[in-house]
């Protein structure tokens, strides 16, 4: 076979998987604790920690915007890659459709997050 090697798109998905895996490993548990347990249950942090004005100001700053975007997008890409590759393990033949569904959902989430963050403004 003299055909040139086809370039694989796997490294892109793997890089997104790795970045999301690292970000969720470093910050995931504490983020879940803060937004999902500490604040709703009134533990440890002041009740108005996530008040509208405070969160809006955080998300309007470019650092806050970048952090929220990275967390949502990379968590989604990490999970999409892992779920896609686990389909085979649970006996589902993972074809093009499954790939489009997994990565497509991550892409849709990424676009919605990016658009909303830009719409919120600076």
């Amino acid at each position: 076979m003299k055909r040139p090697l086809k370039r694989s798109n796997a490294p892109i998905f793997w890089a997104l998987f790795g970045a999301g895996g690292m970000l969720s490993a470093l910050f995931g548990p504490m983020l879940v604790f803060i937004t999902g347990l500490a604040i709703p249950l009134g533990l440890l942090l002041p009740a108005d920690t996530l008040s509208y004005s405070r969160v809006l100001a955080f998300v309007q700053h470019w650092i806050g915007k970048g952090f929220v975007f990275a967390v949502i997008a990379l968590f989604l890409w990490h999970a999409a890659h892992r779920i896609f590759h686990s389909l085979h393990d649970i006996g589902i033949h993972a074809g093009v459709g499954a790939k489009l569904l997994c990565y497509g959902l991550a892409l849709v989430g990424t676009v919605i997050a990016g658009y909303t963050l830009l719409a919120i403004g600076f």
Binding site: S24, G28, V68, V71, A79, I83, S86, T116, A119
Partner: peptide
């Protein structure tokens, strides 16, 4: 990964509600 995805979805809904 199922929980990572679900939590990202929770945050995404929160972001939409914020907007």
């Amino acid at each position: 990964a199922l929980f990572v995805a679900a939590y990202a979805a929770v945050l995404l809904i929160g972001l939409l509600r914020l907007a």
